[in-house]
Design a protein around this nucleic acid. Sequence first.
DNA 1: CCCCAAATGTTGTAATTACAACATACTTTC
DNA 2: GAAAGTATGTTGTAATTACAACATTTGGGG
Lengths: 221, 221
Amino acid sequence: MDISVLHNSILFKGFDDTEISELLKALNATEKKYNKGEMIFSSGEITDKLCFVTAGGVTIESNDMWGNRTILNLVGKGQFFTESYALLPDVPMLVDVCAAEDCSIVFLSMKSLADLNDTIRARLLANLLTITTRKNLHLSSRSFHTAPRQVRGRIMAYLNTVSVQKHSREFDIPFDRQQLADYLNVERSVLSNELSKMQRDGLIRCRKNHFEIITVTYLPG
Amino acid sequence: MDISVLHNSILFKGFDDTEISELLKALNATEKKYNKGEMIFSSGEITDKLCFVTAGGVTIESNDMWGNRTILNLVGKGQFFTESYALLPDVPMLVDVCAAEDCSIVFLSMKSLADLNDTIRARLLANLLTITTRKNLHLSSRSFHTAPRQVRGRIMAYLNTVSVQKHSREFDIPFDRQQLADYLNVERSVLSNELSKMQRDGLIRCRKNHFEIITVTYLPG
DNA sequence: CCCCAAATGTTGTAATTACAACATACTTTC
DNA sequence: GAAAGTATGTTGTAATTACAACATTTGGGG
């Protein structure tokens, strides 16, 4: 198991190596590898596992009965997922979790939290609070990215966020075209088309998943 | 200040009357009334206040520069909001908070958390964790309600959720038409129109904000 | 009971998107 | 470096939505 990634995670912030090893044991940590496209959880499942990405990445998505996918979030190396369901173990999952690429996941049993001593548990809970709070902001972000009614507005909303996060007008995005379309809740072909128009209009430049924002001020029309 | 609502809140679960009174003092609890439509927070603001609705309700919304509103969440009596921003006090708010009706809000300073003794703080943090976790599920819910591409699909997704929550095919929703439209990210007139069609098609019955689902199985086309 | 204001419903047209089908580019494997 | 497979770009048409304008209903105050 790749301990180093876990050591730098938010969950174990403030814990030393010995404590982390003991915690991993206490929480029944297990690791499993998945191939791109494999399903890790399906909607309706119940779990008490807090999941951690040690390699690769997964998408949190909703797939309706007509095959439409909506990507709610992309969880990359060093990040957690299913924390909500792990902490509210009565609630069946509303989402699917799917390997966005070959990846490796560590599962931690939150049921076992109760067995820890108070001090350790308090420190863990404080860290969990940070995780859920940040996840909240991520979920809110997507709402802003899908709020504009037009495709161009959604693209710009998303690209602006990434640009601010990376402190640069030039950056890579973690999505391919189909994933970005599913994240922004638009048709892939319409997305491709709009990206072309935006390049012709001199708003952006892009090649594959590398983007450059030429003009910041986006005006509708 | 209306103590009884706070006593039954998730935040103070497990605390007795004396402890709650002390905590309210320690967290500099203040109460303020707002009229319908009044702004409580604007996007860009920074706050360390955890907010609690003692009466009425507020909307968490995004208003873009062209006057388009998107309602992310409706927070009613007995519920909390801005917990993410209170706990991550560096992060400027992405949303506006607006009084959906005449309401009364209690503000709790999270900066003051640090001054509490370890035991009390640990218990509070555990309760905060429940609040943020539930908020996460609410935010996810909205994503499912706005995931369908067609208006009818969005309406059914939303009504189904409410129906499940209330354990009944007949229920009131907390939104008026404009609010529901802004929550589902569609035009108000299109929403009204679609509701009419759905009644003609025998899917639902509704009058004002009272709804009845006639047929559960919704098939596209 | 009437008037007013707000909320909701209806309709038509312009604009946008969905969808399918196809074209091109890029990767990987042998 | 061909072949096959995947990802991305382009285009046209049908369907849907946005928007504006107007009609109707509802719920108070006078």
